[in-house]
Write a protein that binds this DNA or RNA. Sequence first.
DNA 1: CGGATGCTTGATGTATCTCAAGACGTGTGG
DNA 2: CCACACGTCTTGAGATACATCAAGCATCCG
Lengths: 245, 245
Amino acid sequence: MASLTAAGTEPLFRLLNCFMPLDQADREALTVLEAGQMLSCDARSDIAREGENPSVVRLLVSGWACRYKDLPDGRRQIVGFFLPGDFCDQNVYILSQLDHSIGALTHVRYYEIAPHQIKDVIDPRPNLLRASLYHELVSSAIQREWLLSIGQRSPVERLAHLFVELYYRLRAVGLATGLTFDFPLTQNHLAEANGVSVVHINRTLQEMRREGLIELSDRQLRIIDLERLKRVSMFNPNYLHFNRA
Amino acid sequence: MASLTAAGTEPLFRLLNCFMPLDQADREALTVLEAGQMLSCDARSDIAREGENPSVVRLLVSGWACRYKDLPDGRRQIVGFFLPGDFCDQNVYILSQLDHSIGALTHVRYYEIAPHQIKDVIDPRPNLLRASLYHELVSSAIQREWLLSIGQRSPVERLAHLFVELYYRLRAVGLATGLTFDFPLTQNHLAEANGVSVVHINRTLQEMRREGLIELSDRQLRIIDLERLKRVSMFNPNYLHFNRA
DNA sequence: CGGATGCTTGATGTATCTCAAGACGTGTGG
DNA sequence: CCACACGTCTTGAGATACATCAAGCATCCG
């Protein structure tokens, strides 16, 4: 069985446990998925490419990844981040063609699992089933919140909002215990996720540091004033649907 | 049984039929949903508000609606449009709290259906089941494409892309037979969906008219040059997953 | 040592916002 | 039936937030 810290299916268990109260039997049921094939992938390489025919479900175990879309002329938009414990699209294997790509932002490790295996594990247990449905719905809700951010929030607000969101999600899977935590995104990633140029991200970050909101260096983020960060970004946690944070 | 034009469950049938080949028996199965309660709602009023506890699934029958999110200070972002035949969130009734609102853009008519009724109709028929899963996945894919649009495309490109998307979707449900069709969105709606000010939308539209791309007046959109519109916006229809357009 | 990768800064241009006003059509109540 | 409010589209003027281009520096690594 996996150790309790950031290995195997433990992050997934912790995440699902935020949606529905799970018990030890649920936890053990999930470990069955650890029989699947564990793969790994280097930073800056793709886990899946647009146009492929997906046939497996991927469960991120360690490292950060992202979903992105690109245009023929090279512009690229990150449309979501994957953290340990996240399924990369539980149901997309149904589609015949992937409409986006998945890229590794750091070195990542993940399971590739056959769809029926997931069903075998999850479907018989009502709470797991419900929690995994939540997971799916929340992924979609996060996309909507990003649309609100990119469409309406200013760059400072956008970054503040993103930092708080990632803080909540990392905490859920046990990767942020305090207000300082590993944060491997480069300014380039932040730019691609927020629809702003790198130069502007750089200046926006400086402003936020000057304001005493955050510190960010050496791949570590320190949230100095969480409440102000939430106020600035008008953060409303309801979209994450963590009933039991 | 409903007439074939834009009434009852016919738009839904047509939409699902774009994902999987359906037969007459599937069509008739869907009409069972017409036993549900038909409601209507005036333009500019809300069908559902953020914070509510959703317990029904809504199927849009006629008119246009949108999903939107707003910030405490009044800013608002439209994150999706609903056309006849669309389910407003097949699965959200699972969540205890709605994280967004649904607003009517025109006078709309819709069914309110109990979740179990939908399951009763859809689950026993494999093609219906698969098609409705597609519907869900495509809604999510559209959100991703919008993120790409708002984050990376210029206002002209964004509008062009939106016009093509809506043309495809309207055609799928039989509401656009030629390149001229009813288009009830105001410039304000376009602004709120694209994260641009109304003034700028106005000027962007003028530019597009000048360029001979479209005509738009009196709630009618005329696509003058579809191919150029697609080229300008770098439109790739793969995200709609209309296998059988 | 040379080449990636990432962060930072300055200078310049422009796309887009904001504010403000007017015109038009439509429905409504006095 | 008129007066008025309201929603929508349009235009102008001015301010500014942001992109772009370009360069320099640090770190890491083969």
